[in-house]
Design a protein around this nucleic acid. Structure first.
Lengths: 210, 210
DNA sequence: TAGGATGTTGAACGTGCGTTTAGTTGGGGA
DNA sequence: TCCCCAACTAAACGCACGTTCAACATCCTA
């Protein structure tokens, strides 16, 4: 009995799960996922063995799609966070962004891997920017890149967590609002810094030994 | 039947709950809290009405303690994040920090209120720093402060979430490690910025109207 | 065209949860 | 001294969850 909109149930369940997990978090019920996919809970177990198995497959699928999409627009964006902004505005990718944010929020493997990829990418972009004379060199390039990625993604995550969209499917609007509010301060900080003197940095670099 | 270490059960349950919630998140069981307080689950309901009631009281209690502790060392720290570092190192306050981090992570009321307090405080400190000529003025002070607080706390939260301590009670070590890794890049960024030119900031401020 | 593999369901099982309830204890005021 | 009220417990209730199971439908192959 093949319905009109029928794609293989396995993939349909997986996609439904990605959306559900993105909206409700990983506490979402197997029953809810099954209902979203118009399928019985038993079938979910049949295809994925367990809820953990379903989640493992969602992780892999989301990461694969993101890797693929990143490859498409390679070099187009330098900041991990602004990549997310671009993604979140595209309806097709919005669930992926939601899923990744959830995974960061709850400490999942997908979130960890995503952050590590971001750090690795940013490392490359930053090195290029420094070589081109656009970015200042750092005393510790690795630590700087890591901090920049962590603070960008962390600020976004915290903002979305503390002030979630009314309709969880409209994540894009919330992400966009965050960037509207943050781009100005971020560019200011990146261009001019925050402090007027080197005192604090000097003090940190050579703590007095009196 | 009053035991040696007996303080009134109500307070003991509340303190146990703060610790449990900090370590396990708000999914922690009423039964677990009751066990930690050496008390029956029924008594928890007797005193707090429901799990939600218990959590509400924990929120209030934690926020009250933090307000009190902040008042003690007023003006001593300028950054919200470094306040957390100081707190996390003091054994007495470690559970509070864990609780607040959990509340930020899961989007609770306590986390939201804590962040708002931090923003309000930072607003004052930043204004003072600008007046003293230590910090640069900003085109939008409110947005800048908000971004700085959000990124500091967000980076810490993300770091702790993705790489949690083996023993969840040793949160202090994880927080300290984060600051060890981040202080350098942060001071660099705050002192010199990241970019070498004003181009991007100018472009942002007056988008081309061709 | 027979028959087994595969996709799918509805009902049930067991577990752990928040909560309720009935009952016990013990101390302080009348 | 009596009694009442607050503190407290053990047991159970009801529910939602992940998971299992027996049965049925559908397709592919021999």
């Amino acid at each position: 009995m093949r319905l009109v909109g029928d794609l293989r149930a396995r993939a349909r369940i997986r996609d439904a799960a990605v959306g559900r997990f993105a909206v409700d978090g990983f506490g979402a019920t197997v029953r809810a996922v099954a209902a979203d996919a118009s399928v019985s809970p038993g079938l979910v177990m049949h295809h994925f063995g367990s809820k953990a198995g379903l989640r493992r497959e969602c992780d892999e699928h989301v990461l694969a799609l993101i890797r693929e999409a990143k490859a498409d627009r390679i070099g187009q964006v330098a900041s991990g966070a602004s990549l997310l902004e671009t993604f979140a505005s595209v309806d097709e990718f919005a669930p992926l962004v939601g899923y990744i944010l959830r995974s960061m929020q709850e400490g999942g493997a997908a979130g960890r891997e995503f952050v590590e990829h971001m750090v690795a990418d940013a490392q490359v972009y930053t090195a290029e920017a420094v070589a081109a004379g656009v970015a200042r060199p750092s005393q510790d390039e690795a630590a700087r890149v890591r901090y920049l990625v962590l603070s960008s993604l962390g600020a976004l995550l915290l903002s979305v967590t503390l002030d979630p969209p009314d309709d969880p499917r409209d994540l894009a609007a919330t992400v966009r609002r965050f960037f509207d509010e943050s781009s100005g301060p971020m560019l200011e900080l990146f261009t001019d810094g925050f402090l007027t003197t080197d005192h604090m940095l000097d003090e940190y670099r050579q703590p007095r030994t009196t």
